[in-house]
Design a binder for these strands. Structure first.
Lengths: 160, 160
DNA sequence: TATTGTTATACTCTATAACTATA
DNA sequence: TATAGTTATAGAGTATAACAATA
């Protein structure tokens, strides 16, 4: 059974290996490094939850934010994601091409578009949120409930 | 004062904004999302510590690992970083071009190269490790010492 | 003047695939 | 056959710069 000529996988699909017998030096004391490893681990959970739909973490973030803030414009969306306006454009195009999001003219600002989930988008995003949240909790099940809450608290404190 | 025509900044240089008044929906309950935000915040610390040298987090990881494991080969290095062999190649080329790392033939395996820091590389990496560790701690100073330890513990538990 | 959307363009990172030398 | 290194190529993500329309 040959794999089909699938072009590219979006990212790494394996956790960052902890190579046995190797000396990691100062890395083990850096929050930055541990954060990166934990993030890759959680990305696997995300990937398991969104398999095959082509929804990456930034796209998921965008969909959730559009759903929770109907009429948000592309510049603000870019700010939320920490990307440039041109990138937010590409995102909106991608969603629109799939019929998940539509652009409607702002009533009070002729420059801006408001982004809205379509009915189809609503359904899809609702299901996706459930799956992503479930997988996120499943992967974090190595932590106790108290540990999970504490981790969330510390991360948010750190992110400022 | 115009900025020089500097080509590209390697990544985002601002924290992911928390846009006031916006509803973040389910994102606030996801470890994955909080991890991402915390990671970006810590990347800023890293960037402050390595300003102008062109050393990105993967490059820093590679340098530390080569320094702590002299003679490591490129394939293993790739495994440590979670990237393909071809990417490890490019890394080694980049270091070698700067005279920080040299390739020496393995004695017992004619296929492999062993990677070693040059004296210049040793000096540079030692200084860089100090600065990165100091900035990492400085940025994490919003946490108490106990909180920092606890965060590290939870992250490592999560990363598996 | 500043901001929104838009387009064109460029760069970084990393993957895949094919090849060679060696094991 | 399997693995290390190498090279060529391609794609995703995102930045900058410029422009038109609107504020």
């Amino acid at each position: 059974m040959k794999r089909p000529p699938s072009p590219h996988r979006p990212r790494t699909l394996a956790p960052i290996a902890r190579v046995p017998g190797l000396d990691y030096g100062v890395l083990d004391e850096l929050l930055g490094y541990s954060l990166r490893r934990a993030q890759v681990a959680m990305f696997l959970a995300f990937h398991a939850a969104t398999r095959g739909v082509g929804v990456t973490p930034p796209r998921f973030t965008a969909l959730v934010v559009i759903g929770a803030n109907p009429g948000i414009n592309q510049s603000v969306l870019g700010r939320v994601l920490g990307i440039a306006r041109s990138g937010a454009m590409a995102l909106a195009d991608w969603f629109e091409a799939r019929g998940w999001v539509e652009r409607r003219r702002h009533l009070d600002d002729g420059r801006a578009w408001g982004l809205h989930l379509t009915p189809r988008g609503e359904t899809l995003v609702a299901a996706m949120k459930r799956r992503v949240a479930a997988e996120d909790r499943r992967r974090a099940a190595v932590l106790g409930a108290g540990e999970r809450r504490e981790l969330l608290r510390l991360l948010n404190k750190l992110a400022g």
